[in-house]
Every structure is written in structure tokens, then in C-alpha cells.
């Protein structure tokens, strides 16, 4: 029985194969970790010296080669504000409908869920094409912060709905039953029982969506545009920070120092947002466990 000898712990061949798989796993991990650390230290090395309070609060000079990123940060925040202000209520309402009014295996729930999953799979640049055709041209918003924010809202809606829905589904059924036994209406149950309990999941989903939106570049190039002045209204064109990094790297000779600094700012913001999301998700979990 040759086959079984290969599995036999005591045979030298099995021991050799054991060792080589272990070596392969360590080797692969070393490559990946090495690349990651290289990337991280390269960013810190080139960017950290430039990031300070002045960099964050002054306007870019000579196409961004020098000066800071204040208007870019402002545009980024405004674009995010639009995206969240639109996506959060829409996402919450849809998630409530999915978890409270449809059964998981029901036809309606399945259809809405499928359309959301497909939407989540559409490449972001294609959502950007749609945003350009629908918001910029058809609705006549032009290259503006409003158009960019609305495009991002389309992009983050599926993830927002799915996380909120799973948060709502984790609320134990006894809670709904006891609330109903107390004679509360469905609206009251929703506002005073379900939403407070699912709030951490909702916010975690929101943070994931914000992270996704902040990293997005391609779709914003042709929806919110390139202008690096301080935006005066939602209808102004505004340059998001990721677009700024792209522009400095590709179109501005000698812009890569400030590109590195901006990249560092972007990553710092993303890590903070992710940290909040993880903490909230953990809190949601412990709350659920202690409630059960």
C-alpha cells in the first residue's frame, strides 16, 4: 500500500512533505508581509515629513507641488456628506423592509437582495459612467460635488443595506414579540426597540461605506471634477483627495512629494474610520451576547 505510507507520520517522506508545506506557507507569508511593510514604510518615509498642521490648512500652490490640501479636504468631506445624507436614510429604510417585512426565503426579499448583490458587483467606474450620464448630464448638475456625492451614494448603498439588515436580523424575536404584547405599534417598535439595538451595525455599515467612498477615485474624475479651489456650494466642482493624489502623481511633474503626503493623510483617515467601524461592530456583538 504505497498510498498510505505517504500519510504515515513516521515515514521520512511524510516528514519531508510536512516540512516543505510549512516552508512554503512561511515563504508566501514573508513575501506578502514584506511587500506590505515596504509599502507602509515607503509611504511614511516620503510622506510623514510633510504632513503637519499647515499642510492640512493651506491651499495648494503651483498645481499642488507646494502648499497644502485644505480645499481638497473640504471637497472630500462635502462629497462624503452628500453621499451619506442620501444613502443612509434610503439604506436604513430598505434594510428595515428587508428584515421586518419580508421573509428571508420569500420572493420579494430574494429579488431585492439579488438586485443589491448585482449592484454591489458593478465595477465602480461603470457606476461613474452612469453618474456622469444621469446626474451630470440628464439632471443637469454638471461636474459638481452634488453629482459626485450622489454617484458615491449609489456605490455604497448595497453594502450599507446588507450590514444594517444583518444587524436588524440579529435582534432576538422575543424582543419584537414582547414589544407587540405591550401594545406598541410597528412604527414605535421600529423607532424605540429595533433601531437603537441595531444602531452599532448601522453605523459600522456606514463607516465601511465611507471607507469605500473615500478610496474611490475613478468615478469622481468625471462626476465631481478636478477643480482644486475651495468649494462655495454643492454645485461647485470639487477635487476629492484621491483625485488629488492621482493628479499629482500623473499630471504634475515634481508633485509626488505632496502626493505621498496626501496619501498618508488619506490612509490615516481610513484607519481611523475602520477603527471606529470595528469597535462598533464589536460592541454590537457583545451587546447581543449579554442580551441573550
Amino acid at each position: 500500500m504505497r498510498e498510505s505510507r505517504a500519510f504515515d507520520l513516521s515515514s521520512p517522506r511524510a516528514a519531508w512533505r510536512d516540512l516543505s508545506l510549512q516552508a512554503a506557507a512561511w515563504f508566501a507569508a514573508a513575501i506578502v508581509a514584506g511587500m506590505f511593510l515596504w509599502l507602509l514604510f515607503d509611504l511614511l518615509w516620503h510622506g510623514a515629513a510633510r504632513v503637519d498642521w499647515t499642510f492640512l490648512t493651506t491651499t495648494p500652490k503651483s498645481s499642488g507641488r507646494s502648499g497644502g490640501i485644505a480645499p481638497i479636504l473640504a471637497s472630500t468631506l462635502l462629497i462624503l456628506f452628500v453621499a451619506i445624507a442620501v444613502a443612509a436614510p434610503l439604506g436604513l429604510a430598505t434594510a428595515v423592509l428587508l428584515s421586518e417585512y419580508t421573509r428571508r426565503e420569500g420572493r420579494l426579499g430574494q429579488m431585492i437582495g439579488l438586485s443589491l448583490d448585482v449592484l454591489a458587483g458593478v465595477p465602480s467606474i461603470v457606476v461613474g459612467l452612469f453618474g456622469n450620464a444621469f446626474f451630470c448630464v440628464w439632471l443637469g448638475l454638471g461636474f459638481s460635488i452634488l453629482a459626485g456625492g450622489l454617484t458615491l451614494a449609489c456605490m455604497i448603498l448595497p453594502i450599507l443595506i446588507r450590514t444594517t439588515e444583518s444587524g436588524l436580523r440579529q435582534v432576538p424575536d422575543e424582543w419584537r414579540l414582547s414589544a407587540e404584547a405591550l401594545g406598541m405599534s410597528r412604527a414605535t417598535i421600529l423607532i424605540h426597540v429595533l433601531i437603537p439595538v441595531a444602531a452599532p451595525a448601522l453605523i459600522a455599515g456606514l463607516m465601511l461605506g465611507i471607507g469605500r467612498a473615500m478610496a474611490e477615485t475613478a468615478a469622481l474624475v468625471f462626476t465631481s471634477g478636478y477643480v482644486d479651489r475651495m468649494p462655495a456650494s454643492f454645485l461647485d466642482s470639487g477635487r476629492a483627495i484621491s483625485v488629488h493624489i492621482y493628479d499629482l502623481t500623473m499630471n504634475v511633474a515634481g508633485g509626488d512629494k505632496n502626493a505621498y503626503a496626501s496619501a498618508l493623510v488619506l490612509i490615516a483617515l481610513l484607519i481611523i474610520i475602520n477603527g471606529i467601524a470595528v469597535a462598533l461592530a464589536d460592541r454590537a456583538l457583545t451587546r447581543r451576547v449579554s442580551a441573550a
Binding site: T94, V127, L157
Partner: peptide, 23 residues
């Protein structure tokens, strides 16, 4: 409440169709 929720879900799930139609 139910109508508000349904309208939202309609918008959210119609978005995909809208994107495809516009493309």
C-alpha cells in the same frame, strides 16, 4: 411607515435597472 419603506426599497432595488437603462 410601510409606504415609506416600500418606496425606499423600490428606489434602492430600481437603481440597478436605472444604471443598466442609462448605459
Amino acid at each position: 411607515l410601510f409606504w415609506i419603506l416600500s418606496a425606499s426599497a423600490l428606489i434602492a432595488s430600481g437603481l440597478l435597472l436605472l444604471i443598466l437603462v442609462f448605459l
